[in-house]
Nucleic acid binder design. Structure first.
Lengths: 255, 255
DNA sequence: CATTGTGAATACGTTCACAGCG
DNA sequence: CGCTGTGAACGTATTCACAATG
């Protein structure tokens, strides 16, 4: 669920497994909440419950970072907040650009979760001259002609793509050429990037489709309709006779 | 990366592995694009490239669905579109509600990817009386007092939460009590749900944090700073002497 | 004979269960 | 004594490589 292409060997990043990295922000959020309530220490059991994982997993995860706990006591909240922040690289400031200021881009610009964790929206960029000059979330929208300049002037290495799918690859290429090496892609497109560039994607319709799959399964459970469970070891039929309703082919994601 | 809590045994869903389910929408999208270009058949190699995975994985994935290919030829595009759609439950209509019509909720309401794949936005719901009566994406916003009625009148089983984190759990409970059994959560909160309810979450700031982690690693690569690579088999140090800058503790995600 | 479908091999991730330790 | 830290066991996912086959 990470790099769109050009996989690096995945778990090579100084030993910390990808799965663990993906959970660190979760722990960090739970710890930050505890920190605000001035809770001094927390056990793996409590923290795991707050983060929605099990405690063995949490302890294993922390063991990759080092031995930051105290046996018989638990973890020092403040210390752990710092260690995880540092591990994630959040003790430094990350300027990001958001390209494509439609509904979603505007939502992201307004999203408080960015600013509060080391991320600073350096610029909003859009191709529409109508948008240029307007402000979104107090940040002026700049024209995409200036993309390269904005990237280099601000030392931006992380870009967020919220454009329509048709232009996402092209925007991606310009970002990369200008020096961006990490991309968060919201457009429903597979991006091709050179080696050394990381892409993560967030795909709203995919998430819903996964839910639909499980939902369907639940529904079929009590009723166990017609073609419910296929006999496991039998050869599955491949006849095209039960094609159902019709061959309707909806339009491609319109953005 | 799926259910917030109350994990069902994960891969128990009639043999199809979770990892495969998560990729089916990707294949479906690639196939739909081919279908629109009237491409009749496609090889695992070509389709894999279009979906951004490798061909062995794709073939393995398809093998869980059945033997839908033809050796020496490839896969029939239309047929495969239908089979995957059916497997994902997209041949039926899924009414969904979106609760919390802020920037993000509005963005989702406008998102074309929903309507085009079996999902129908049955209602937009917000707690703010100011919003009620207004229209977003041509759909009237209704007040959250009517939540239960809306759910049951429309037979909604999938809910999308785009509220501020403070009310997400409470909204979740009302949705579940009213009959919703699948939830897509955009609020940065761990939701507790009873058994039988699926939760998937999309967390924007987590994705950025994961990118920052890798970005940081890249930066440290050429310079190989002070505590670069820890000697693998050696005991990792746990001394608190290298705490760095200071113990700054940033604020919690403000929404 | 190009391409699928799949066992076998490998890599990765999670959970168990308990020794080690403050 | 309670809780961490971690080897060992287990389960899941990916990749390899090739026999089966339209």
């Amino acid at each position: 669920m990470a790099t769109g292409r050009t996989h690096r060997p995945a778990t090579r990043s100084r030993g910390i497994p990808e799965a663990t990295v993906a959970r660190l922000p979760l722990y960090l959020r739970a710890l930050t909440a505890l920190s605000e309530r001035s809770v001094p220490t927390v056990s793996s059991e409590e923290l795991a419950a707050a983060a929605g994982v099990n405690s063995a997993k949490l302890r294993k995860d922390f063991s990759y970072l080092g031995s930051y706990g105290t046996r018989g006591v638990g973890y020092d909240v403040e210390y752990l907040v710092y260690q995880i922040s540092r591990e994630l690289g959040l003790t430094q400031d990350w300027p990001v650009v958001i390209v494509g200021i439609g509904n979603l881009g505007a939502a992201l610009a307004n999203y408080g979760g960015f600013a509060s964790r080391g991320f600073r929206v350096a610029a909003l960029i859009d191709a529409d001259p109508e948008m240029t000059g307007r402000q979104v979330a107090g940040i002026p929208v700049r024209h995409s002609d200036d993309l390269e300049r904005i990237i280099s002037d601000n030392g931006v290495s992380i870009g967020v793509i919220t454009t329509p799918p048709g232009v996402a690859q092209q925007v991606c290429e310009r970002l990369v050429a200008a020096g961006v090496t990490s991309i968060l892609n919201f457009a429903p497109t597979v991006l091709s990037v050179p080696d050394g560039v990381d892409v993560r994607k967030v795909d709203l319709s995919i998430e819903l489709q996964i839910l639909a799959f499980h939902e369907q399964r639940k529904a079929g459970e009590e009723a166990a309709a017609h073609d419910g469970a296929v006999p496991a070891p039998a050869v599955r039929r491949a006849d095209a006779t039960d094609q159902g309703p019709d061959g309707d082919v909806p339009a491609v994601m319109p953005a």
